[in-house]
Amino acid sequence: MLIGAFCSFGVAALASRMELLDKEGHPIYLLGRALWYWPWLIWEIIKAGIDVSKIILSPKMPISPTLINVRSSQKSAVGIVTYANSITLTPGTVSVELEGDEITVHAITRAGADDLAEGHMDRVVSRFEGGGAT
């Protein structure tokens, strides 16, 4: 086990000396902010999940599927991917297509699409990515 630990530390040290690592490959600098971003995301997932469950269980199934384009204000690739993944992870909205800073989102209800277009999640992800308040 000691040899294994020594080897992995050695490889990491060599890789960083050879400048093989970049910020994108190992975004450890996001870890501190992730500690408050993840609970917020989990809370959003719970709220949205209960909404979708109500839609499924109601006999009429009041769905109004909507396709909408949203702009993401993140600067780095990590931020945009985090935003798109957060959209998909939240029940009720799925990011269908992603190009540049434009994301096409399929939402199961009109209200869900409107919430997303309002841009609250976008601002939170931007703060998670950049640290600065927007």
């Binding site: 599927p65 396709l67 909408i68 269908v96 297509e97 190009e99 096409t104 009109r110 699409a113």
Partner: peptide
């Protein structure tokens, strides 16, 4: 997996049944 599935379905030409299309027919990309 979900995003890959949705993207593949869109590229295969399956259009979603929509009540409201706010994209104006424009898909990102």
């Amino acid at each position: 997996a979900t995003h890959a599935l949705a993207q593949a379905a869109l590229h295969a030409g399956i259009l979603p049944k929509l009540d409201h299309d706010k994209t104006g027919g424009h898909i990102a990309g």
